[in-house]
Each structure stands twice: as C-alpha cells, then as structure tokens.
Write a protein that binds this DNA or RNA. Structure first.
Lengths: 216, 216
DNA sequence: TAATATATGTTGCAAATGCAACATTTTGAG
DNA sequence: CTCAAAATGTTGCATTTGCAACATATATTA
C-alpha cells in the first residue's frame, strides 16, 4: 500500500497511517466488481476512502431510473455528508466498478483528538478540510455553469475554466455524452450547438480535442 | 454576547469560546452598514463568523454586473474555501448590510491542535465539519434542482423538498423574484409556469403561501 | 476477425423559455 | 399618510431546447 498517494493522508508516512488506522479503529475491506460498498439507506457516520480500484455512486429513483451521480477513483473519499443531497429519498448506493479496497473511518474519530494523541491527527483534519473544500468548489463551479441560460453560454463558461487550467487547447476530461449530462443539456442539442459554435468561429473541435479561439 | 446561538460554537460555553478565541488569536471586528468586511482578491486563509448583524457576498464581473451570491445572517460562517468558485476571476466581496460584528479565525488554527490543548477544540472541529457539510448539502440540492429540464420540474422538486421539511402547506423562504434567480429561470416565465401549475391543479398559491396538492 | 454495443453526429418539429413591455400591488422611507 | 421604489402578475413573439428518429463511427468482446 502507498498511502502517500491518497490525498487524505498527504504528508503522513505509511507507517503513521497504519498507526492511526489502528488507533481509530478504521476498517479496510475488499470488494469485487459489482459488489455493494455502501448503501445510504442505513446511514453510517463514516467516510470511505478508495485505497485501490474505483466505484460509482448510483441513484435509483421511485420510477426505477438509474443515474450515476459520481465516480470515485483511487484516493477519492466519499460519505453521506460529503456532497450529495437525497431529499427525494431515492436509493443511493456505492458500487465497486472493479476489484477495490476501501477504508472506512468514523467521522467522530477524525474530529476527536484521540487518546493516544496521534502525531499527525491535525494534519489529517487539515487534509479532510482541503478535500471537502475541493468538492465544495467543484459543486459551486457546476452551479455557475448550470446557471447560464443557453447551452452556448454553459459550454463557453466551462471551456474557459478548462482553458485557464490547461491553455487554449485542451482535451475534454470526459466524453461528449458525459459532458451533455454534466451541463444538463440534451446530447443532440448540445452537439448541434457545438457545430454552430464552430461555424461561428468560437471554437475548433475534433472529438475530445478543443481549441478555444476567443478566450474571454 | 451569546456564542451558544452560533452553530460553530454549539456545545461550547461562552467562557470557553472566549478562552479559545484568545488562544487562537482570533479577531473580532465591527462593521457599519455598507462597509467592506472582506475581499477575496487578497486571499486570507480565514473563516469569518457573523456574530451580530448580516452581510452579503457580492460578485462583480468584468462587465460591471453585480450579483448577490449569498446572504449571511447571525451564526453563519463564510470564507474563501467555503462554497464559492471564482474561476472567472470576478471581484468577490462581503459587505455588511447592517451594523455587524464578525469574528475571523485562521483555518490552520482550527485544524491544528493548539498548544494549550483547549478542551473544546475537537468540538469546534466537529461543528466546522457539520457547517461545511450543511453548505455542501445545500449546494448539491441546488444542483439537483437546476438539473431538471423544465421550470415546472424544478419548481415541483423544490416544493417537494420544502414540503418534506414543513408539510404540504408552507411559505416560500424567499421572495418570488429571488426564487426565480435561485432556480435560474426568467421571473416572468416562472410566474407563467406557476399559473399553469395552479390551473393544472398541482398547487394552490397565494403570494408566498403555497399548498402542494400532490406530494410525490 | 466478426459481431455487438456504445458513442457521436444530424435534422425536423413541437414545446418551453427568455425577453420586452406593460399593468398592478406591496413595501418602505420620509 | 404620501410617494417612490421594488415586487408581482400578464402576454405576444422570437429563440432555444428537448425529443425522436435516424446514420455513422468507435470501442469492446467473443
């Protein structure tokens, strides 16, 4: 295991992580492909850390419609309190997409100063804040995008965010189909708008490769 | 001062709050109406706690357009890391709307275990998690709303959330105009849709008072 | 490799929406 | 109370969008 690559444990050595894990009474479990990692009907006050593999958070509504809410890769954390609202009372589950290893830590163990006063506890708390803040940021970013009126405005706003990160030429970090879902637009309508934007000389596009002509 | 009413300090006595404040080196400042509380151009690693009064987070974009992003009441916390993304590089400021009192605490003081080992430090951290989680929840709730295709679906989803909280009859927690901004719809178009929903027997509505006929 | 599933691209059409312009009501300041 | 400002309600019209039904391209698996 290389815990160093997991953001939650950044700045903490593998040995210290192991020490904290036992101090916290955290559990590490293995899951095969398709196996249920957790179910948010029974609310556990735990945070899950993807040590290895990947998983998907799946929502099933009362009509049986299934939606992938989030994908988790190695190093990602997930938990009931972390970034999803389930006001509709739908079934929300996390399912392993491959063979995976997940660590479960109780929230109150993170917030409490443990009795043995683990050296790196405050670092863990700071990392946790950082991760939640990052998630919060990506949520508010998406709200900014969704608050634009037209598909063109949504796309341009999103492309500008990407261009600030990667420059005027970049590859989409997701498929076109997923992009449509992300900006909550009909896929075909979005493709049509992308064509128009090319015709209007705003972008050049080839598959996932995009060149933003006029950076705002 | 009654710190007990401030969520961040819940479960901590006023005396202990004062003790922690001095231990943290936190500052309490007064602001008059219209005064600048903080500016996110110069990024301070602090969290602000509204002790008294209220304030607004204001964004000004490159075209000089002004938008109220958030309103803060007594007990609310705000901070750079907390729930806003500023990819567009707009000017974001927090302005006092009345005479107000604000406490500023440095993030790392919250995450670090202080040297004098304040008794209630872990309670503070837990409260902070709770507040961020609450904010995260409201953000993802808004995303759920914005992801609905039609104005009617947005409204019904939002009304159902409210009805789970307050029952089938409730008052809007904001003005109709603000509701339109919240669901990112044109105000007049939204009003039109509300009329149609009444005509279709989905709701009864009188000003802010709403009765949801068919709870989903 | 072939066969199948998935992703992408295109278009007509009906429905939903934004926008503008207006009337009316409510609120708040003096 | 009076008056002005803000909020609310209404409607016609042009634009944008979702939807359906396709064709084609790419990826995946047997």
């Amino acid at each position: 295991m290389q815990f160093k690559e997991i953001n939650l444990f950044e700045g903490i050595s593998d040995e210290d992580v192991m020490r904290m894990v036992s101090c916290f009474g955290a559990k590490i479990k293995d899951f095969g492909e398709g196996e249920l990692i957790c179910d948010y009907s029974d609310t556990g006050e735990e945070v899950g850390v993807m040590i290895r593999g990947c998983a998907a958070m799946i929502r099933t509504d009362e009509n049986g419609e299934i939606a992938v809410m989030e994908l988790f890769a190695e190093g990602d954390i997930f938990g009931e309190v972390l970034a999803f609202s389930n006001e509709a009372g739908d079934s929300v589950k996390v399912i392993a997409e491959r063979d995976s290893e997940v660590m479960f830590i109780k929230y109150d163990q993170i917030t409490k100063r443990c009795e043995r006063a683990c050296e790196h506890h405050s670092r863990l708390v700071a990392n946790m804040f950082g991760l939640i803040a990052k998630k919060t940021l990506s949520l508010s970013q998406r709200i900014e995008i969704l608050s634009k009126k037209t598909t063109r405005e949504k796309l341009l706003y999103y492309f500008n965010i990407l261009s600030k990160k990667y420059g005027a030429e970049f590859s989409l970090p997701m498929s076109v189909t997923r992009l449509a879902a992300y900006i909550c637009a009909d896929r075909s309508a979005m493709t049509r708008e992308l064509s128009r934007m090319q015709a209007d000389g705003l972008i050049e596009m080839n598959r996932k490769r995009i060149k933003l002509k006029k950076v705002v």
